[in-house]
Design a protein around this nucleic acid. Structure first.
Length: 224
DNA sequence: AAGGGATGCAACCGCTCAATT
DNA sequence: CAATTGAGCGGTTGCATCCCT
């Protein structure tokens, strides 16, 4: 049973990539484009697993990557998207041009989790942490506490974090998402999963009980 | 200055899903 | 329709660096 290994482990390098390996990978992809990752290492003369090549390219070598610190706006967007999508890092990353799922995942685990705890919000549920246990380590300042209050301590039975405004608009804030099941969509709408690159999503239509039928109107001039 | 713990990031591993045979 | 294959995803780990004592 099981599956064959994705590569011959005996003849593959592991660990940090060398500059030479990076250059080989980049020049190969520049010349041939992204194709069959499984065959790429051999073709490019790399002693690496195809998965490793893909990861290296996606997370580090791609030319369109935005390196550097996350902005506050990106922070907030990630928090909102996480509240809506959960740990779907690739979907979240799709909304943040130049950011990778791995980067966002790391950033979430290292920064945002703590930030939310400091606000008294459970990073997993996005609800106020119950009891006074809320963020014991939370520094009194939390400087950017931005309106947190969120009744952190108080609303123990609060069903939903009042701070959580699931407005997914990435562009101009005006592009509000119709949260209601809006029976009639006046403008063309598209399943969010589709927009994020999941062509065959399993979202039910609007009004789906499972709640994963995200529909959002297209912004002006925007197309799928 | 040195040691040890905390933190952050890059990379690996195993699983799932979709496409292909 | 079932089996196989490959790509992609999310969780986890390992290591380098930072910070505090």
């Amino acid at each position: 049973m099981g599956r064959s290994p994705c590569c011959e482990k005996a003849h593959t390098n592991k660990g940090a990539w060398t500059k030479e390996e990076d250059e080989r990978l980049v020049s190969y992809i520049r010349a041939h484009g992204e194709g069959c990752w499984r065959a790429l290492p051999k073709a490019a003369g790399l002693l690496r697993c195809g998965k490793s090549c893909r990861l290296r390219w996606m997370n580090y070598l791609r030319p369109d990557l935005k390196r550097g610190n996350f902005t506050d706006a990106e922070d907030e967007l990630i928090i909102r998207l996480h509240g809506l999508l959960g740990n779907k890092w690739s979907l979240i990353a799709a909304q943040l041009p130049g950011r990778t799922d791995n980067e966002i995942k790391n950033y979430w685990n290292t920064h945002i989790k703590r930030k939310l705890l400091a606000r008294g919000i459970d990073p997993q549920t996005h609800r106020p942490v119950t009891g006074a246990a809320a963020a014991p380590a939370a520094k009194p300042d939390s400087s950017d506490d931005g309106g947190s209050s969120s009744g952190a301590s108080a609303g123990t039975t609060e069903p939903r974090c009042p701070d959580l405004n699931l407005d997914l608009s990435v562009g101009p804030p005006a592009a509000a998402a119709p949260t209601s099941t809006s029976d009639s969509h006046p403008q063309p709408s598209v399943c969010l999963c589709y927009r994020l690159g999941r062509q065959a999503c399993r979202c039910a239509g609007p009004g789906t009980p499972q709640g994963f039928g995200y529909l959002r109107p297209l912004d002006q001039g925007q197309h799928i």
